[in-house]
C-alpha cells in the first residue's frame, strides 16, 4: 500500500498565484481525477508533484518521504511515474525500444557501451506493449504512430518503471471518443490489477465520471470541491465554474 500525501502546495509565477494551497491524499487503488477550467493550475500541480517545478511552500510525501526538492529522475526512481499532456516519446526509436529504455534505466544499465540496446529487455517490453494493446506495432518507429497509439506507448513506458503512483496529465487528449473510453477502462483495470494509485487530469467528462473513484475540482489554483463523481456533479459551485457564474 502506497500513499501520496500532498499538503498545502503553493506556487506563484511573477506574483500571480498558480497553485494556492492544494492538499489531498492519494492511495493505492485510487483513480483520482483532477478537473477544472483552463488555467486553473492543473498542469502546474502536476509539475510540482513530479519535481519539474519547485513549490514555494508545502510538502509532498510518498509513504512518509519528502519529495519536494528532489529532481524528477529521483522522484521517478522512488516510484512516481508520469505521462505528459503533449506526448513526449523518443521519436527516433521503435515502440519497443522506447519501453526498453525505461527498463534499462530501471535496471541501471544505461551506461553500457558495448552490448546492443535493442537486444536487452526486449521480452518484458513486448509483454508490456501487449498489455496496452500495442504488441502488434512494437517494431514501428514511434514517430509515425497515430496520436492515440502514442498515448498507449506512454502508458506502457510509465508501467515499465513499475510505479506505485502514476501521474497522468490529460491521458486522452487528442484521442477519438471511443479510444478515450478504452484507454480509461484500461487504466482503471491496471489500477485494480497492480494496486496503482493514479492521479489524472482530463477534459472529457465521460472519462472522468465513468472511471474516477474520486474527483478533485481546481479553480484559480484552489481546490473548490472534492468527493465522489456524483457528489461533485451535484455541487453547485462546480456547476458555476464550468457554466459560468456572473456576467
Amino acid at each position: 500500500m502506497s500513499e501520496l500525501v500532498v499538503r498545502d502546495l503553493q506556487r506563484s509565477f511573477g506574483g500571480v498565484q498558480a497553485v494556492g494551497g492544494v492538499s489531498f491524499t492519494l492511495r493505492s487503488g485510487n483513480l483520482l481525477a483532477l478537473i477544472g477550467p483552463n488555467g486553473a493550475g492543473k498542469s502546474t500541480c502536476f509539475n510540482l508533484l513530479n519535481g519539474q517545478l519547485r513549490p514555494d511552500s508545502g510538502s509532498v510525501k510518498l509513504d512518509g518521504m519528502e519529495l519536494v526538492g528532489l529532481p524528477p529522475r529521483r522522484i521517478w526512481a522512488l516510484g512516481v511515474g508520469r505521462t505528459f499532456q503533449i506526448t513526449a516519446t523518443f521519436a527516433s526509436m521503435t515502440v519497443a525500444e522506447n519501453v526498453q529504455m525505461v527498463l534499462l534505466s530501471r535496471a541501471r544499465r544505461l551506461f553500457g557501451l558495448w552490448r546492443p540496446a535493442a537486444a536487452q529487455f526486449r521480452e518484458p517490453a513486448l509483454a508490456l506493449l501487449e498489455r496496452v494493446g500495442m504488441g502488434s506495432q512494437a517494431d514501428r518507429p514511434c514517430g509515425v504512430l497515430a496520436y492515440g497509439d502514442v498515448k498507449r506507448v506512454e502508458l506502457a513506458m510509465a508501467l515499465a518503471s513499475e510505479p506505485t503512483v502514476l501521474l497522468m496529465d490529460e491521458p486522452t487528449a487528442g484521442m477519438a471518443p471511443a479510444e478515450r473510453l478504452a484507454l480509461m477502462a484500461l487504466t482503471a483495470e491496471l489500477v485494480r490489477e497492480r494496486g496503482l494509485a493514479v492521479l489524472f487530469t482530463e477534459h472529457d467528462m465521460d472519462a472522468v465520471f465513468g472511471h474516477a473513484t474520486r474527483v478533485l475540482v481546481l479553480d484559480r489554483g484552489r481546490l473548490i470541491a472534492e468527493g465522489s463523481p456524483d457528489q461533485v456533479r451535484a455541487n453547485p459551485r462546480v456547476q458555476s465554474v464550468y457554466l459560468g457564474g456572473e456576467a
Binding site: 477550467p37 477519438a176 471518443p177 472529457d204 464550468y242 457554466l243 459560468g244 456572473e246 456576467a247
Partner: peptide
C-alpha cells in the same frame, strides 16, 4: 469562443457548440 454560458448569453445572438 467562450466556456461561460452566462457570459455568452449576455452578449451573443447565436451559438455554435463544438466537442472534440
Amino acid at each position: 469562443s467562450e466556456q461561460s454560458l452566462s457570459f455568452a448569453s449576455a452578449v451573443a445572438d447565436r451559438a455554435c457548440v463544438i466537442e472534440t
